[in-house]
Nucleic acid binder design. Structure first.
Length: 296
RNA sequence: GGAGGAGUAGCGAAGUGGCCAAACGCGGCUGACUGUAAAUCAGUUCCUUCGGGUUCGGUGGUUCAAAUCCGCCCUCCUCCA
């Protein structure tokens, strides 16, 4: 059984995962796109060293900030890890806020090994032309992807060029049921409560030395490194003239908007059990764990 | 006290007689999501029983018709005293 603790950023996932893991002797697997980066500690609210050593943690700090890391890498590493742990009957707890990453592990998402293809011709097209081209090779995908969503249109074209198959066709062939049995819990704070928590958290990040962390990292990595696209870092890099107060507001705003998108994704893409409090969620998870234990 | 300028939807800001419930941006809300996902994109945003109703600082006028023109009042800004 895989336990998934998801929810919006700053909702209290880390603490819940820690408590639950300790109670059942489980291992925690990171389900967060930016906590995989070494050095991004304060801004990503990564579990502290002490927390990480109190329970086995996986897939944290596995790549450098200037390395690219994608769902493809995540899926492969997470699945391998899950298989190993389950084989040893170790309960697996995935926690994080990157819904798509978690989905790609649980469901039969298939990513073909990437083969470089020349996209320059398509990059040069207008978005209308590009969308029309996609229509000509994969009508179904074109109908699902808005012409303005250039990133997705391009990817659908790229898939076709790399594999010779339509994106829609590849997805058609995938199993629709989860690959692993799972229970998923989310922590849902009221909007106002979450907004306050986010602001407080951003203020804390500055107090803990977010600026200094970034400055130190910039001695080793270029500001364009993939890891620096994370909220909390990208704002600092893009707005060197803003005051700490203004930056706090900007980061909090971006975080709130991100939290909203997370909420939509979890609510609509998974079967979830939502809870408002840490204790309720923990109680539910423990009960679930007991049930599955008795069935084994 | 005098001279100018400004007050438009949650905020910023266009509009200066009819095509205005009012462009656009931000924020808010809802949604999509299969290799950048802490990303990218879409819809929506005065009220409504969907017939309509009530708006552009306030008020009184002019006009077939006013956010737009005129009078008075209120508030804010700049300059002169």
């Amino acid at each position: 059984m895989i336990y998934i603790i998801a929810g919006q950023t700053a909702s209290g996932k880390t603490a819940l995962a820690l408590d639950f893991a300790k109670r059942i002797g489980g291992h925690i697997i990171n389900g967060d796109a930016f906590q995989v980066y070494r050095g991004l500690d304060i801004g990503t609210a990564k579990p502290t060293k002490e927390e990480q050593s109190s329970v086995p943690h996986h897939l944290y700090d596995i790549v450098d900030i200037d390395q690219s890391f994608s769902i493809f890498d995540y899926q492969a590493r997470a699945r391998q890890l899950i298989d190993e742990l389950l084989a040893k009957h170790v309960p697996v707890i995935i926690t994080g806020g990157s819904g798509l990453y978690i989905r790609s592990v649980l469901f039969d998402y298939t990513f073909s090994p990437s083969r470089p293809v020349d996209m320059s011709m398509y990059l040069a097209m207008s978005s209308e032309e590009r969308h029309r081209f996609l229509q000509s090779i994969d009508e179904e995908s074109a109908s699902k992807i808005h012409a303005n969503n250039q990133r997705r249109v391009l990817r659908a074209i790229e898939i076709f060029l790399q594999t010779g198959r339509k994106k829609s066709e590849i997805e058609q062939d995938q199993k629709k049921t989860p690959l692993y049995p799972y229970v998923m819990v989310t922590l849902d704070q009221d909007k106002e409560v979450l907004a306050k928590r986010i602001t407080t958290r951003v203020e804390m990040m500055f107090k803990s030395g977010l600026q200094a962390e970034l400055t130190a990292l910039l001695n080793h990595y270029p500001p364009t490194a993939p890891g620096f696209r994370a909220i909390g870092y990208k704002e600092l890099l893009a707005n060197p003239d803003l005051s700490e107060e203004q930056l706090t507001q900007l980061i909090a705003l971006n975080t709130r908007q991100y939290a909203k998108r997370q909420n939509t994704f979890f609510k609509n893409q998974f079967h979830i059990h939502p809870f408002k409090t840490h204790d309720d969620a923990l109680g539910f998870l423990l009960k679930k764990h007991e049930e599955t234990h008795n069935n084994e």
